[in-house]
Design a protein around this nucleic acid. Structure first.
Lengths: 199, 199
DNA sequence: GTCTATAATCCGATAGAC
DNA sequence: GTCTATCGGATTATAGAC
């Protein structure tokens, strides 16, 4: 039923999606402020002036980049949801972080660095959008901890996600991927040590 | 011997120091990219064009902001060094973080947010300067853990500082100072639980 | 040393031809 | 729908008067 190649609809959408993907990639690498419309247009192989047909403002493009990152996070957690044990899901998440250590050391966590940047603004509402993006991960993690019957699942989720954001920032600032390896190993040990009677 | 008010030398330095302090404050609040020379000049009550007499480029001002934050961190750790027990020094650091929760929730960790922003650049060497700033804190913490005779003091320091960076980012993204309170309490508990025979 | 005026550049956004 | 040309505003940096 959903025609995936109707020329009129898909020609436009294809370009739009290319722009979204390029925005996510380039904004992650260069930061939102230092990225120009021209940078994104070039990366997406779209003429500069044409961008405004798909996105009214630069902020719309940044918001699209945020959405794209949330979407990719959804794909990951969706796969992890197939695992039976919540603890294995959480460990799978940590392993996924460890496997991305090179990217994290170079550019930081996509969502985290973007959130940090957007939180410097008050106008436009991009700052609250960044908060919502972070909360998606936080809520997913909290659900796993709750399913494990652990006390204060919300606090545990904050610790886990915070640890990830922190190690990504350190790895990035020091340009040392090994920080990710070491700290992810610690996190796995921590997850294994948690038992229902308190830690 | 060090004349603190020789007019020729100090008149210049006074303005320079005002610009440094203003740069540290405004850059923390607005971010480096969104802060203009005019913003800093206005905050320091210095005519805009005059800034260039003290700092050749904007990057020089950003570097000065970084130095200022490192200096203030040095003041804090210097006070903590007076405590006898290394564990108490570390707990004192965590308590200092908790006391700054409102600022952290609004603008993030001064050093961390700046490092995340500057790591997006390759030219100018500001990115490695940010790394060095982070390392100052890391090294101080590692010294305390080593003095406690704990295994892998470097890894423990990464965990501690990473936890701080992470909770600051979360508190900032969610605009919730309570994240700082909760996670700092967890950190204190963690510090108390560490014993020399492994954790 | 201090400050003003302005040059030079860059970038987001629009108008309008095709 | 697609693209070019360009406007207008903002910002870094400099030239030069005082």
């Amino acid at each position: 039923m959903t025609d995936s190649k109707s020329p009129r609809v898909r020609a436009a959408s294809a370009k739009r999606e290319r722009l979204m993907a390029a925005a996510a990639r380039v904004v992650h690498q260069q930061g939102a402020e230092r990225t120009t419309i021209a940078d994104i247009a070039h990366a997406a192989d779209v003429p500069v002036g044409n961008v405004y047909y798909y996105f009214k403002t630069k902020d719309d493009l940044v918001a699209a980049a945020l959405t794209e990152h949330v979407r990719q996070l959804g794909l990951l957690t969706g796969q992890l949801d197939d695992l039976d044990d919540p603890r294995e899901r959480l460990k799978g998440l940590v392993e996924a972080w460890a496997s991305q250590r090179e990217v994290a050391a170079r550019y930081g966590c996509p969502t985290g660095t973007l959130a940090a940047e957007l939180d410097k603004r008050t106008e436009g509402g991009l700052d609250v959008a960044a908060g919502k993006a972070i909360r998606v991960l936080l809520d997913w993690a909290e659900r796993q901890f709750r399913e494990l019957g652990l006390p204060d699942p919300g606090g545990l989720a904050e610790t886990l996600v915070g640890a990830y954001q922190g190690m990504s920032l350190l790895a990035n600032a020091l340009r040392e991927p090994d920080v990710m390896t070491r700290q992810c190993a610690r996190l796995v040990g921590w997850l294994d040590s948690l038992s229902a009677d308190g830690s």
